[in-house]
Design a protein around this nucleic acid. Sequence first.
DNA 1: GATTGGATCGCCT
DNA 2: GGCGATCCAATCG
Length: 181
Amino acid sequence: PAEKVARELLGMFLLHDSDEGRTVGKIVETEAYLGQNDPACHSAGGPTKRNKSMFGPGGRVYVYRIYGIHWCFNITADEDVIPAAVLIRALEPVAGISLMQERRKKDQLPELCSGPAKLTVAVGITGQHDGLSLFSGPIRVYGGPPKGDDEIVSTTRVGISRAADWKLRFYLKDNQYISRK
DNA sequence: GATTGGATCGCCT
DNA sequence: GGCGATCCAATCG
C-alpha cells in the first residue's frame, strides 16, 4: 500500500548513477497517492499517456512535468492493478554534493533537495527516466527505514485541492532538509 | 477544438 | 506575498 511505502521510504537512500556522476540522498519527506479511489492522484481518471507508469508493478519510476517547467519524481506502489505512487518531496544530501551544487547553482545544503522539483534537478532525474525499474538500472533505493513511528510526522499533502484533509504527507521529525513544516 | 489550471520554484517587491 | 515561466491532461461544449 502506498501509505505504508511512503512511511517506510523515510530514512532510506536514493541513488542515481548518471553520466555526470553519482548522487545519494536520504529520503526525508514523502507523500502517498493511493490510486483511483484517491481524488488527488493522477490516476484517478484512468490511464493516460502521462500516468501509465503507475498502472503496473510497484518499485518503478514515475516522473511527470508540473507547471510546464519542473519534473517531479515518484516511486510506484501497491499491487499491479492499483495505480498508486509515492511522491519524493525532499532529500538530505549524502554523496555527490558538489555535483548537486553545480546542477542547482546553489551552495547551501538545505537549498539543494528541499522540494520535489529541486531534488530532481539535484540528482539529475527527468522525464527520460519515467517507467524505469528501481531493481535494475541507474536509479536505486537501499537501506532501511528509521526505527519507531514516533520520529515520523504525518500531515496533509501540499498544493492539492481534492482530498485536501487526508494526512498522507510524511516527514522525519526535526529534519533540517524538508521542504516546509 | 479551446480553455483551464496544476503534487513548483525563484525572483521581485 | 505576488507573479512569471510555459507543458499537458482534464474539462467544457
